[in-house]
């Protein structure tokens, strides 16, 4: 599964994209797995209320299952327009 990061989430984690080999059951399980890796992930995921998530390019939430998901993206609230 590909995990993508945008805006300050990308800057804090230090990469725009990475592959993970595990299959977490939910978005939250993926977040917990990433948080346990290194301080930079802990810093990026410190306040989940400041983050949004997309699963396979559709806005989703942290309880969403990842069954069959190919791409998960984390980013701050969007500021288009």
């Amino acid at each position: 599964m590909d995990v993508l990061y945008f805006a300050w989430v990308r800057e804090r984690i230090g990469v725009p994209k990475e592959k993970i080999d595990t299959v977490p059951a939910t978005v939250m399980a993926l977040v917990d797995e990433l948080r346990s890796r290194e301080a930079r992930y802990e810093a990026a995921f410190a306040d989940l209320s400041a983050l949004r998530v997309a699963v396979d390019q559709e806005l989703s939430d942290f309880d969403a299952p990842l069954d069959g998901a190919r791409e998960v993206a984390f980013f701050p609230p969007m500021t288009g327009g």
Partner: peptide, 18 residues
């Protein structure tokens, strides 16, 4: 503004922030 995945970073002088 709130549902399309765009993020703006503004720079003024030497500082830049999301």
């Amino acid at each position: 503004k709130s549902r399309a995945p765009f993020w703006k970073k503004e720079a003024s002088g030497t500082a830049a922030d999301w």
